[in-house]
């Protein structure tokens, strides 16, 4: 996005690297955190430890990815967590209604993806076509989606069938299922990054007026961004369901703001036009690693939230400062 400017001074090697790969500062922070985790609790960096971390935070990674696509275009989705809740209860109820067989799981997942997509399109239409302000409009839709989730399942607690969570937490050929999921995810993201849509979203976020004048269908692109966000929020809901093995109409609410934090930690600009999906995944990992580190260093339980909050705030600040210095 920045290549169009005149290269007046040749920036140094490191600076150029960060400009090319905005997620590098996040990667360094994540590696340091990983090393600290290993120092305080050697078993946390073992195969089992990493598997556990992935299993717990795959949902947040998915939701951070979801958020990234709307942030690309300079938008934001405060309903992402509510979509997770809705899809979670929809698939759990569907699987239960159909008897919990293998087929019911597949059918429920299909319905879950459709639900996420529909929510995303609603958000896109409301924000891009009706031109409401993204922050307040997606907050309003989040209330609506939460209402829907409460309608589908008024009280938390319906269990997911064993076929579902055993698969999510299980192993195939000695390798945990979540690692297959990560590989598939990586391929998907690689393909998505090479599609026209990614570039178009970034172009809209960089300068919507310029994108419009060069003939891009800005409204449609933004709606597609929200639709993609809805789909990945559905995937996040699958991970949540696999991890918690039950339905809860309010399960995703707390995840929304963390997904925004993960995107910023990953080096993407909230103003749009600049960012990477990998960065958001690393950002979600950073949040997970901070949470586990605070636990491993033996912080008294009542102090854990405060230390986590401070560490995340500091990481957010550090990431933004380093990123800006690299781009300045």
């Amino acid at each position: 996005m920045t290549d169009a400017t005149l290269p007046t001074t040749r920036p140094g090697g490191l600076k150029r690297l960060v400009e090319r790969y905005p997620f590098l500062p996040a990667l360094v922070i994540a590696l340091v955190l990983l090393a600290l985790n290993g120092f305080y609790q050697p078993r946390s960096v073992s195969f089992i430890g990493i598997t556990g971390l992935t299993k717990t935070y795959l949902a947040l990674m998915m939701l951070a990815i979801a958020q990234t696509y709307v942030v690309y275009a300079g938008d934001i989705d405060l309903s992402a967590g509510a979509i997770v809740s809705l899809v979670n209860v929809v698939i759990v109820v569907m699987m239960e209604k159909m008897g919990g067989s293998g087929f019911s799981v597949v059918a429920a997942l299909g319905l879950g993806l459709a639900t996420g997509l529909a929510c995303g399109i609603v958000n896109g239409v409301v924000v891009a076509a009706l031109r409401l302000q993204a922050i307040v409009a997606t907050f309003a839709t989040s209330i609506f989606f939460t209402g829907l989730a409460l309608y589908v399942m008024p009280v938390a607690g319906t269990p997911a069938p064993a076929a579902f969570w055993r698969t999510y937490g299980g192993r195939f050929f000695e390798i945990p299922f979540v690692f297959y999921a990560v590989v598939v995810l990586a391929i998907m993201l690689y393909v998505l990054a090479r599609t026209r849509l990614s570039t178009q979203l970034l172009a809209v976020g960089d300068d919507a007026q310029a994108a419009f004048q060069s003939g891009l269908p800005v409204t449609r692109i933004r709606i597609q961004g929200y639709a993609l966000c809805g789909l990945f929020a559905a995937l996040a809901a699958f991970c949540v369901t696999g991890d918690t093995a039950s339905g809860d109409p309010l399960v995703g609410g707390k995840m929304t703001l963390f997904s925004v934090a993960a995107v910023v930690l990953g080096g993407s600009a909230l103003s749009g036009g600049y960012g990477t999906v990998i960065g958001s995944i690393i950002g979600a990992l950073i949040i997970g690693l901070i949470n586990s580190l605070v636990f491993f260093v033996g912080t008294p339980s009542e102090w854990q939230n405060l230390v986590q909050g401070l560490a995340i705030l500091l990481a957010l600040m550090a990431g933004i400062l380093v990123g800006r210095r690299a781009r300045a």
Partner: peptide
């Protein structure tokens, strides 16, 4: 109305 309906109406009205 139930909590669910209340939230849906509230969200839709806000929009």
């Amino acid at each position: 109305i139930d909590e669910s309906g209340r939230q849906m109406v509230f969200g839709a009205t806000l929009l």
